[in-house]
Amino acid sequence: MTAKPRIATVSLAGCFGCHMSFLDLDEAMLPLFERIELDRTPLNDVKELGPCDVGLVEGGLCNAENVAVLREFRARCKVLVAVGACAINGGLPAQRNALDVGQMLVDVYRSRPGLAPGSDVPNDPELPLPLAQVHPIHEVVHVDHFLPGCPPSAETIGALLTALLVGREPSLPPLRYD
């Protein structure tokens, strides 16, 4: 094999904690990075996603841009992994699903105490509109692997990546959802 496996990562409605847990592999990152090429990821400056072997997706879907980016990842990654509680079932951000999104924006941007006079809900087309509800990513695209945890441990992420790199079914450490 001449080309190294290409791996992309992204945070949608995530907190970047799953990426931090990935970095918790510590010195185990070094041999890993010798075996792979990083495509688009918050860890580098690549803007355009290329064809990839593995896409790691952290975070659920909370706005229109999240959906567009997720579809792009699905189209360009052979294997797509939902990493962490948010990507798997919406996570704690999905607790907003009990509330009305329009009212929430008003509460935060217009009527919250301490705002400057005239403050209002942002209305520039540059900004992605929030979805009425937060959704897990498997409700929009097919997901090949779920990696539970909030966040998954570095050990779990390392075990999954290693298994995918050598092309066998992952055998993960004891599961955690919290």
Partner: peptide, 20 residues
């Protein structure tokens, strides 16, 4: 949660109900 761990449940597999 214990049952999920014991049975190796990693993901939901279905569209969430999100009760209120």
């Amino acid at each position: 949660q214990d049952a999920g761990y014991a049975l190796g449940v990693t993901g939901p597999g279905f569209e969430e109900f999100f009760p209120r």
